[in-house]
């Protein structure tokens, strides 16, 4: 029976991942900011047959809360096998351009606080000699674009951090998975016009669970984003800077 901590558990992708693990009989801890929403998710999982679900209310952007949360999760789960970090925000790019404070806030939510959290989790797992750390980054972190580069910078930084962490922990029995979803139809992207490239949170969740099981390092979800990003990354900067992306 797997023992799983999901951080940012009210996100659409996290919820779908949790549903899959419930079917596998896992024990789950759901961490997030909003207690009532967490209980809605927890009740849903219990109705679906979850044997053990615990809700942890945490202000994740404040690293001072992280230690307690991890401790409580380990107590409830009686151990810790996997952690999925799924929280984040989609910044308003224009607001960030106009205000450095706003930019730093978004970088903290999407990058710095995640790094703080991973530092603790990594050390715990390294000591124990096993565990899986799955973190949701984004294809937006593969190349900076004018429409979305604050988010891109945060996710790009996060991907590099995960790369290094993976390298450090590879010989210690701890697996680090970087998840790079493309366009996902979630509440975060409600205002976008959806085309062919969009997929459901359920599809992405299936990809995440599969990648965790197979100990993959970096997954693009769906797979075709690897190709798309390869093309985007290969455009010479001299041309790229003139493109409206």
């Amino acid at each position: 029976m797997k023992k799983i901590l999901i951080i940012g558990a009210t996100s659409a992708i996290a919820r779908e991942v949790a549903k899959i693990y419930v079917l596998q009989g896992a024990r789950l801890c759901l961490a997030g900011r909003d207690e009532k929403k967490l209980h809605i998710v927890a009740d849903d999982l219990t109705a679906r047959g979850a044997q053990a679900v615990q809700v942890l209310t945490v202000e994740l952007t404040d690293p001072a809360t992280h230690g307690d949360m991890i401790k409580q999760a380990e107590d409830f789960l009686q151990g810790l096998d996997c952690v999925l970090i799924a929280y984040g925000s989609l910044p308003d790019q224009h607001a960030c351009e106009a205000d450095a404070g706003q930019t730093l806030k978004e970088l903290n939510t999407n990058f710095i606080s995640v790094v703080a959290l991973l530092t603790r989790l990594a050390n715990d797992m390294e000591q124990r000699g096993h565990g899986v750390l799955a973190v949701i980054s984004s294809v937006a972190g593969d190349r900076g674009r004018q429409s979305n580069y604050i988010y891109g910078a945060a996710k790009g930084g996060l991907s590099i951090f995960l790369q290094g962490l993976r390298n450090r922990l590879a010989s210690k029995g701890v697996h680090v998975l970087t998840v790079k979803p493309g366009f996902v139809d979630t509440p975060m992207t409600v205002d976008f016009n959806k085309g062919l490239l969009w997929v459901s949170a359920e599809t992405v969740a299936q990809g995440i669970v599969k990648a965790m099981d197979k100990k993959r390092d970096v997954v693009y979800l769906p797979w075709f984003w690897r190709g798309i990003m390869l093309i985007i990354k290969s455009i010479p900067e001299r041309m790229f800077k003139k493109m409206k992306l």
Binding site: A12, I40, V41, D43, D44, A47, R48, P187
Partner: peptide, 17 residues
């Protein structure tokens, strides 16, 4: 997105969602 189950009473067969 209002797609959460709330309670499933497996004995009585009552479902709230």
């Amino acid at each position: 997105r209002l797609n959460h189950f709330i309670h499933f009473d497996r004995e009585q067969g009552i479902l709230r969602c």
